[in-house]
């Protein structure tokens, strides 16, 4: 992981409740999602109870970090000033092996090289000493 950058200028999540836990795990280099203790269903974004079976019992289970590109858009005109220098960039939906999907970005791939189904694995981009963002890089199939 790269050094913590104190001048990270892009918007960060509000660290509160389950969202704080999610990003703090990312800061430790671990991609974890909620997994129901009763029916085993994975879920993202965090929820209080299992929408599949109604159980309140769950844990932060570690994802393999492997998945594939589900869809993306290419932003060529930033609608937030912090991203103005980043265009063109591609907010990308990754479908993890566990079945959950996550909005992220493939860091080692220009937008025009993205393909649906492209295999990727998680990498962490350090934003603050506590927080890292889960991003992805290409892996060979």
């Amino acid at each position: 992981m790269s050094d913590p950058s104190s001048d990270y200028a892009k918007p960060l999540p509000e660290l509160d409740g389950h969202t704080e836990d999610f990003y703090t795990f990312c800061g430790l280099g671990e991609l974890r999602f909620q997994r129901c203790d009763d029916c085993g269903a994975w879920r993202h974004v965090p929820r209080e109870l299992c929408p599949e079976c109604g159980s309140w019992s769950w844990q932060w289970a570690r994802s393999s970090g492997r998945g594939s590109v589900f869809t993306w858009t290419v932003v060529t005109r930033a609608l937030h000033p912090a991203f103005a220098e980043s265009v063109p960039y591609a907010p990308t939906v990754i479908e993890l092996e566990e079945g959950v999907r996550l909005l992220s970005e493939v860091v080692d791939c220009t937008p025009d090289a993205l393909e649906i189904g492209m295999p990727v694995e998680v990498v962490f981009e350090r934003a603050t000493p506590e927080v890292a963002l889960p991003k992805f890089r290409r892996v060979s199939a």
Partner: peptide, 23 residues
Amino acid sequence: ARDYYLPFGMTAPPQWYSLMARR
């Protein structure tokens, strides 16, 4: 959207819906 989209630069409806359009 603030916690799970905005940090990745997805900020507004045309970006949301274009995910569906591409699919």
